[in-house]
């Protein structure tokens, strides 16, 4: 009898993707869905989609979802969680959504220790609107609104969200991961799983920042993009766990 080694997670619909070739959103969606399957929480999961490339996340995820206004997902998720304290509530946000327009919402949700999970996809650019400079765009990086490269004098340094939020007392778990290699995917999945587990055990706010590529707007092939991520993004955005109340308690 043949053993099923690989299948689509129940928490994902079987539909064609709208994401660009090589984009990491598909992988990250899948990791989230696998975690939800493994934790057996599909029935009580409520997701909040952002404005950005993942605006249609609810087309892929097979559980209840709300579409939030740009940047407001942590506030929306707060409202949901306060109504259903037992639900698994998470936001899925990009870097423009979370680190620019939604900076206040994410900081305060984290500061309150809001018992939600945030999947923060950092690809250093605005994807959906066609490749504009994001708060996470690297210095010198060319985008459609930084045609001469991000200028340190006028645009400042890119924000390291995980490090910033880890200075707060509210978060229970903050980690930065990448999905550029199978090994990193496994680490990413483990982090996402922990971010849900700690939410469900009432530990506090959990965030997993996932470094991601945007081949289309970076103007690179997927392979070139992965290389660029490794050579440019990872040095500025070091992978690792920035806060873990469970580890700290040990």
């Amino acid at each position: 009898m043949a053993e099923v080694l690989f299948s689509r997670p129940k928490a994902l619909f079987d539909i064609p993707t709208h994401y660009c070739p090589g984009c990491h959103h598909g992988i990250i969606h899948r990791l989230v869905a696998e975690v939800i399957d493994e934790l057996g929480i599909q029935e009580k999961t409520i997701g909040v989609a952002p404005v950005g490339c993942a605006v249609l996340a609810y087309d892929y995820f097979n559980f209840d979802m709300l579409e939030a206004a740009h940047g407001r997902a942590p506030a929306v998720a707060t409202g949901v969680k306060r109504v259903h304290p037992d639900a698994a509530v998470f936001t899925y946000q990009g870097d423009g959504d979370l680190a620019a327009i939604g900076c206040a919402e994410i900081v305060h949700a984290a500061a309150r220790g809001e018992k939600i999970t945030t999947i923060f996809v950092n690809n250093a650019i605005y994807g959906m609107t066609g490749g504009q400079m994001a708060p996470t765009t690297l210095v010198g990086q060319v985008t459609s609104t930084s045609p001469y490269g991000r200028n340190l004098e006028t645009a400042g340094m890119p924000i390291r969200v995980s490090e910033m939020l880890a200075t707060l007392d509210g978060p229970a778990f903050i980690a930065r991961v990448a999905v550029n290699t199978p090994a990193n995917m496994n680490k990413a999945k483990a982090a996402i799983k922990k971010a849900f587990e700690l939410q469900l055990s009432g530990q506090g706010f959990c965030l997993v920042e996932v470094l991601s590529i945007c081949p289309t707007n970076w103007g690179k092939t997927p392979l070139e993009a992965v290389k660029w991520l490794e050579e440019n993004m990872v040095p500025h955005y070091p992978l690792g766990v920035y806060k873990d109340v469970q580890e700290a308690a040990k």
Partner: peptide
């Protein structure tokens, strides 16, 4: 937006 979430 919290109202939006709670109402939703």
């Amino acid at each position: 937006n919290m109202v939006y979430g709670a109402a939703g």
